[in-house]
């Protein structure tokens, strides 16, 4: 399962811990890469900065993207992902606490594949993360690899 990476873009350390725990509780075996701001997310995807040495041919199967991020916010990250040929087909799931209509419209408008609001109740959160993993890493057929080139 080395090629099925989940990229988690999350700046809140509490949410990071809880998210990882939720994955674990759902017996998710995929490698979960955590980046903590928008800049780092882009560095990882485009193999720049701290991730310059990374193998560019390996891209995540799904990106879980928070909107409220330091440095570069989530929507801007999404715009740049969709603007670049190497990443424009990557499935992006917005995972955020905002239910603002504006954020929903702009997220879908920029090409988000899904929009999930983080529930406050941890049990519900675990359930949601489980369904996410199941859908995007197992049920969903990712775009062909050649398109990532």
């Amino acid at each position: 399962m080395r090629d099925k990476i989940i990229l988690l873009v999350e700046d809140n350390p509490d949410d990071e811990v809880l998210s990882l725990r939720a994955f674990k509780k759902n017996n998710v075996t995929n490698e979960v890469i955590v980046v903590r701001d928008g800049q780092e997310a882009l560095d990882y995807l485009f193999c720049a900065g701290a991730h310059a040495h990374r193998d560019t041919s390996i891209q995540p199967t799904v990106i879980l993207l928070d909107l409220n991020l330091p440095k570069i916010d989530g929507l801007e990250v999404l715009r740049r992902i969709r603007a670049d040929n190497r990443t424009r087909l990557l499935p992006v799931v917005i995972l955020t606490s905002s239910k603002e209509e504006q954020d929903l419209l702009r997220g879908y408008g920029l090409g988000a594949n899904s929009y999930i609001r983080k529930p406050v109740n941890f049990n519900e959160f675990v359930e949601a993360v489980g369904k996410l993993q199941l859908y995007w890493t197992l049920l969903n057929e990712p775009p062909p690899h050649t398109a990532n080139a």
């Binding site: 509490d14 949410d15 811990v17 809880l18 409220n68 606490s97 983080k118 941890f122 049990n123 959160f125």
Partner: peptide, 21 residues
């Protein structure tokens, strides 16, 4: 309102999540 929605929910999630933990 926006920050109430966003910013207050995040700590609540933490409280709930870690209580469960």
């Amino acid at each position: 309102s926006y920050s109430v929605a966003h910013d207050l929910r995040a700590p609540l999630r933490g409280i709930d999540g870690f209580s469960q933990v």
